[in-house]
Every structure is written in structure tokens, then in C-alpha cells.
Amino acid sequence: MANGSGPGGSDRLKTNEAGKKAAAKALRNDIRPDVRTAGTTAEEGTAQAGTALHGWSTAKALKNVHDEWDRQVRNLQALLSADEEALTKTAEGFSAFDRRTGKGFDDQRTNELLRRFYGGTKAKGD
């Protein structure tokens, strides 16, 4: 590694903003709704089986399984939601940071030009 660069020899931080946005969109529009649908379908079948077996110890076991399934689906939904939010914020954060950094360079260039114009004296507010 030369000059603080990582593997591949590039000294620039790169991010795939479009990829992050696409992944967040897939989580929001496809994956989370599909998990919700699959979770609901399994819950309905388990509840029906529990009702049919009312009075049997198997019904109580199915109720326990149903409750655990519901908890796991909610946990998975929360994780997927957190991933979606992190992807969105990361994409937005990189863009905002890039804009602020660019503006900082623009300000530095402007200040340098003013210094040169005024013959080496500092510009007002510098």
C-alpha cells in the first residue's frame, strides 16, 4: 500500500451511491413486503391448525411456535428496516460530505485568488 491507499492502489474513497439507493429500494418495495406476506401466510396456517387441534397438547405447542414465529418475523422486519435506513443515510451522507468538501475547496481557491489579487495581504474575514 502506497500513500495510504488501500488494496488496488487507489487513493480515493469510492462509494456506489446508485447501488445503495437500489438496495434500499429493493428492501422497501420487495424484500420487506415479501417477508411480511410469508410471515402472515405461515401465521394463518399455524393458527388454523391450532384451532383444529383445540384441547390437544399439540395446539398449545403450535401456539408457542406461532408466537415465536411472529416475534422472529417482527425482528427480521426491524433489521431489514434498519438496513434500509442505513443504506439511505449512507448514500445521502457521502453525497453531502462530497458537496461540503467541494465547497471547502472552492472557498480555499477563492481565498487564494483574493490573496494574490491583493498582493499577498489577507482577504477580509480570512
Rank of each mutant, 00 (worst) to 15 (best):
G6N: 08
A38F: 15
V35D: 00
H66G: 08
D67F: 02
S95H: 13
A91T: 05
R115L: 03
A96G: 08
E92H: 15
T58G: 08
N16W: 06
M1P: 15
G8Y: 07
N16H: 13
A52C: 04
G125C: 07
L80S: 00
R28S: 07
A49S: 02
Q48E: 12
T58W: 07
G8C: 03
L79E: 12
L114Y: 12
Q72I: 05
D70F: 03
V65P: 08
D107L: 11
G45C: 06
K63Q: 10
N75T: 02
F105H: 12
R71H: 08
L79G: 02
T15F: 14
R74L: 09
D98W: 08
R109M: 15
G119R: 07
T51E: 10
T121A: 06
W56L: 10
S5T: 15
G45F: 03
G119W: 04
H66D: 13
G55Q: 01
K89F: 06
A61S: 03
G39V: 00
K20Q: 05
R115G: 13
L113G: 13
G93R: 02
M1V: 10
R32S: 04
V65T: 13
S10R: 13
V73M: 01
L114F: 01
L53H: 01
G120P: 02
A96E: 07
K20R: 11
R36Y: 08
K124V: 10
N64R: 06
R116E: 08
A59M: 01
G104R: 09
D106Y: 05
S95A: 15
R109N: 14
G104H: 02
S5W: 10
F97Y: 14
G8A: 06
G9M: 10
L113C: 06
R99G: 03
E84Y: 00
D107M: 12
A82S: 09
A59S: 03
G9I: 04
T15C: 09
M1L: 05
T37D: 15
L87K: 00
K20N: 14
A123E: 10
D106R: 07
R115T: 13
N3G: 12
N111D: 08
Q48S: 07
T41R: 11
E17Y: 04
G45M: 08
T88N: 01
K103R: 09
E84I: 00
G120F: 03
